[in-house]
Computed example of a mutant assay.
Amino acid sequence: MGSPDKGGKPDMRDVLKDVENSIQLSDPDPVKRAQIQMRTPLPKRFYKQAAVVQDGDRFAVHLDGKPVRTPGKNLLALPTEAAAKLVAQEFEEQTEVIDPMKMPVLRLVNTAIDGVATDPQAVLEDILRFASTDMLCYRAEGPESLVERQNTHWDPVLDWVQTGVGARFNLAEGVMHVEQPRESIAVLGVWLARRNDPFRLAGLHVMTSLTGSALLALAVEASEIESEAAWLAAHVDEDWQIAQWGQDAEAVARRAQRHHDFVAAVKLLDSLG
């Protein structure tokens, strides 16, 4: 379990990592994770067919007629048929072995059921902590080309947050901490509270973690920005550095895996309606 915070309560980021680790995510770094799993024998595909079966007001995933359980032994059931079909499709796409690295939606759903559902408020608060130091609020002092890129990609999101959500954020140059208005964080908290479904919160948390910006994640969820535009916005600084100095193969692989997980989170959010 993750280490407690100052109030004695476990940090939700550590809790969610612990849940992920229980489903064969053996390292938070996607490249290292892939290397570890290459050395670990993967379970063979033991089923012929994956299907979605309605179970009350939920939609469960079945393998050869038997319901799938999460690592925490909970029924793997989702609130919409479209969401359940995403998981079933990942099971269908497995060939000779079952590779969790190729099942990002399943990993996210397991995290939602076994982790987020036990304490959704903690996940909501963790997203708010990201927002209080959101990447979009920290601007480069130079060079001008980087400043212009940040303004182009980030200002429209902050404009939407102010006009659409009602939260105003302060900007800073460099890395010096800037305090955000308590009222703005409170408004975001109310906005998130309307989205406290464990699956939606799990998707938002993953998108926030991968981009470093809760505001980008909320804008994607609200259809105020296309997901790929948000991904580019999250990497403005990195892409500027790449343009100057290039990048190595490991960095390319790491970003590709993170993008894979980001796309899975977007698909899950879209499937929830």
Rank of each mutant, 00 (worst) to 15 (best):
R182A: 15
M103Y: 02
V147P: 04
E141V: 10
V109M: 07
R33C: 11
M135S: 13
Q257R: 05
P198W: 08
N21R: 11
A172W: 10
V165E: 06
L201Y: 03
W191P: 09
G189I: 14
R129I: 09
T111D: 11
T70H: 01
E173L: 09
F262T: 02
P67D: 02
R69H: 03
T80W: 02
E92R: 10
V175P: 08
Q150H: 06
R33F: 14
G166F: 08
D197Y: 10
H62P: 05
V263F: 00
S213W: 02
A219V: 11
E226V: 15
R39D: 13
P67F: 06
I242G: 06
Q247L: 14
R149F: 10
I185P: 10
W191F: 15
A51G: 11
W245C: 15
A77Y: 00
T70Q: 10
D237Q: 10
V161C: 09
S209N: 13
L204D: 00
L188D: 14
E224S: 15
M12Q: 05
L201N: 13
P143D: 02
A264F: 04
V97S: 00
G203N: 09
Q150E: 05
M101E: 04
A249H: 11
V161E: 05
A50F: 13
D55N: 13
A249K: 07
V52I: 15
A256P: 00
E228I: 15
D119N: 15
G203T: 03
D270H: 04
I36G: 07
P30Q: 10
V147Y: 10
G273M: 00
E92S: 08
W154E: 02
K85H: 10
Q94V: 01
P181G: 12
P28A: 04
M101Y: 03
Y47W: 15
E93T: 00
E96S: 04
V147S: 01
S227E: 12
